[in-house]
Amino acid sequence: MTTLSQASSVSMRAEQTRLERRYAHLGLLLIAPTVLIFSAVIVYPLISAIYMSLFSIFTPTLEGKWVGVDNYVQLLSASEFWWSLLNNLIWTVGTLTLQIVFGIGMALVLHQNIWFRSLARSLILFPYFISTVVAVLVWKWLFNDLYGILNHLMMSAGLIDMPIDYLGDMPNAMISVILVGAWKYFPFVVIAVLARLQSIPDQLYEAAKIDGAGAVARFFDVTLPQLREVLVVIVMLRAIWDFKEFDLIFLLTGGGPIISTQTLPLMVYKEAFALNQLGMASAYAVVMMAIMLFFMIVYIRKTREKSA
């Protein structure tokens, strides 16, 4: 009997092992398309960029020679790189801060029971869905120092005596770019925060009112802690997207005046297609990726420490 029982047990374990292997093979087969697509659109371009950054490549012919880390040495020793990085940080921090402030404020308004709430919720998405090219054309018309409506209204109201060059002078150019970026992308914050606000239990606000908390106290003691998790995700996503923003800044100022609003994505474009140095452009792209990765790791660690 003992021998028969042991044989049965061995047979069951063997069958279980075969099933586990079959499920493992099925799992690999199911995720294989995802892995292939991920490798094609992310891994391969990343490896190619790192590889090309070690060469001096002439963009039109794609011919070049091995230079090793010379591109990185030249990049880090160039004042234009550090100036562009500073502009990148100013743009990212400035526009992200305004997006968070305006986004939370607008989400709180749209969360209230107002009669035009449905219409307002639809219209608030307009800046986010509109084409960047169209948005830039409208804002460049508003900012124009000769026939722009913004200067016209301000001069008519007696606020200014002379037209302001919003996009051709500093710090006006950087402020204008940040404002346009915040206007364009703050609806993303509104959508995410509004979705979280609707899931906060009303009992928390009722308990806070019973304790005598006013509107401001309820926001900081109830609403903001409940929004912490979604704000962590919003800040991380929007920081990544804003840091690599190209088209809006390029179309508004082209990095000007001179290089006053030039960011690292514009430097990549400049090196690759204006100076025809594809290897140097790849080095800029790799350094840019490393900077984003560093800040994201620090940010994730800090948020985990606070939540713990």
Rank of each mutant, 00 (worst) to 15 (best):
V268C: 03
I300N: 07
L28A: 14
I50E: 06
Q262M: 13
R117S: 09
V232L: 03
S56C: 04
R117I: 05
L46D: 08
L96A: 04
L110I: 01
L150T: 09
A40Y: 12
L19T: 14
W66V: 12
V177M: 10
V268M: 13
L237Y: 08
I149K: 07
I210R: 09
L167K: 09
M288C: 06
P265L: 03
I104H: 02
V138F: 05
T92G: 06
L146W: 14
P225C: 02
D145C: 09
A208C: 03
I191V: 15
W91T: 02
L19E: 13
A24G: 15
Y72S: 02
E229R: 09
F295I: 13
I175R: 07
A157D: 02
V138L: 08
L110C: 04
T132M: 10
D202V: 11
T253R: 03
P187H: 01
G168A: 05
P257G: 07
L76G: 08
L167G: 07
V133Q: 02
F55H: 11
T3L: 14
R238C: 01
S5G: 04
I240V: 10
S307P: 13
V43S: 13
R196I: 01
S307E: 15
V136D: 05
G214T: 03
V73T: 15
D247F: 13
G94W: 00
V222M: 07
M296C: 12
D247N: 08
I37M: 15
P163E: 00
L4R: 12
Q262L: 13
V177A: 07
I104A: 00
W141E: 00
F295C: 05
G94A: 00
V41K: 05
L62I: 09
T303R: 11
R238M: 02
T263N: 06
Q99M: 08
I104N: 00
P60C: 08
I240E: 02
I164P: 09
